[in-house]
Design a binder for these strands. Structure first.
Lengths: 217, 217
DNA sequence: TAGATTGTTAATCGATTAACAATC
DNA sequence: TAGATTGTTAATCGATTAACAATC
């Protein structure tokens, strides 16, 4: 179970397995990699490799994996069991949606504080999260010891706010703005870009229609 | 410029180039692939291949690409120039944020209608988008001729609502729920999974801290 | 035992990167 | 011309898939 040795595509699939396993009825005690692969439309060997990388005990021939243990192993592997504190900058519609999203808790992330520059928002709370004046960030953020910064601002301010976060203990930026962020080693940036997703969908859709159109000839 | 022949990773990068080009000052007439690669921290040859796949005219040695033409070509290639209609199901916080998001327009997508089952929401509008009773979907959706369905509901109802959309002309599902959707050929599903992104960040962060920790020895 | 299932070693496939020839 | 830059052909790298041996 060497966490650093797993491939990126493999790591992307683990949360998918986990959420699928959680939908299984409580009566399902064991499940085979074959069954998981079939349910999710993936290659069987790939699933087996992924699961064996994340699972401590491994599966047993003819039985498969214990669902309960596998869930526990995946949660452990993905770090869902130890809570990581995050801060959020930019309480617009998207920022607000993320603040009120309940799902982060079970993934081991807690948004400890939010920041904005709008006096109408400062001082209020969304869910359990207090909205602070952005100018208080240098006071508040280091105290919290948060390492993840969620950036949901307009692209114009993104770089400056990113720099501000890095000065105050943030090590990884979850960037929901379209701006490209320049950061020093070894800071992590993860871009969440809806335009990219939309481009994929448009492209696939166009291709599909071409294909279906041609079949009529 | 064969759109169907581009690789998936390459396609993912095109919107990134496009948004970078749009940040350049109007005085910048031409830009080299080399410069783009340096600015975005990518491999130079990769950028050159990506751009030559999407650009009609190509770049000129010693000059590079015309910024204006390249933007036009990328927009054309990504289908931003012809508007695609979408519908959205589930006007919660995230759904509402997407409805009010202005950026989809320039990516060639228009959300033509939204649906929910909450009487408090039905009949209202967010941005330009009318919120309909979900029961009206079979009437409204086919009339619009929308092909993209944005799913922002709880995972429990996701599959049933997905099925409903497919019965009414939707060909591609943009799935923001954590549910795994079962769809027939040749329907497209694109999963937008925050848990996956978070897992990547957590993993990278943990790895970074291990690495930095070790260096102190 | 036979068969389902596991996990691993080897082959294939696709994307990235390096080397190079072409051109303004 | 020399040099920056392009686009392509070949080499490398990494991930997926296929084949197989191990095991309950």
């Amino acid at each position: 179970m060497d966490k650093s040795n797993i491939s990126k595509p493999s790591l992307r699939r683990l949360p998918v397995y986990l959420s699928y396993l959680k939908t299984l009825p409580a009566s399902t005690r064991t499940i085979s990699a074959t069954a998981v692969a079939a349910a999710l439309g993936l290659n069987e060997v790939q699933v087996r490799k992924d699961l064996s990388a994340a699972s401590s005990g491994g599966g047993r021939p003819k039985m498969g994996y214990s669902v309960k243990e596998l869930i526990a192993d995946l949660e452990e592997f993905l770090g869902y069991r130890n809570t990581k504190d995050a801060i959020l900058i930019g309480v617009g519609r998207l920022g607000g949606a993320l603040l009120s999203f309940k799902g982060f808790g079970e993934c081991g992330m807690r948004i400890a504080a939010a920041f904005d520059n709008d006096p109408m928002k400062i001082g209020r709370r969304i869910g359990d999260v207090q909205i602070h004046d952005i100018r208080e960030l240098p006071d508040v953020c280091p105290k919290l010891g948060a390492h993840i910064g969620i950036l949901t601002t307009s692209p114009e301010h993104a770089q400056a706010l990113c720099d501000l976060m890095l000065k105050n203990g943030i090590l990884a930026i979850w960037n929901f703005s379209t701006a490209h962020l320049e950061v020093p080693e070894p800071i992590i940036v993860h871009n969440e870009n809806l335009a990219v997703s939309l481009a994929m969908i448009s492209h696939d859709l166009e291709e599909m229609m071409d294909r279906e159109g041609k079949q009529e000839d």
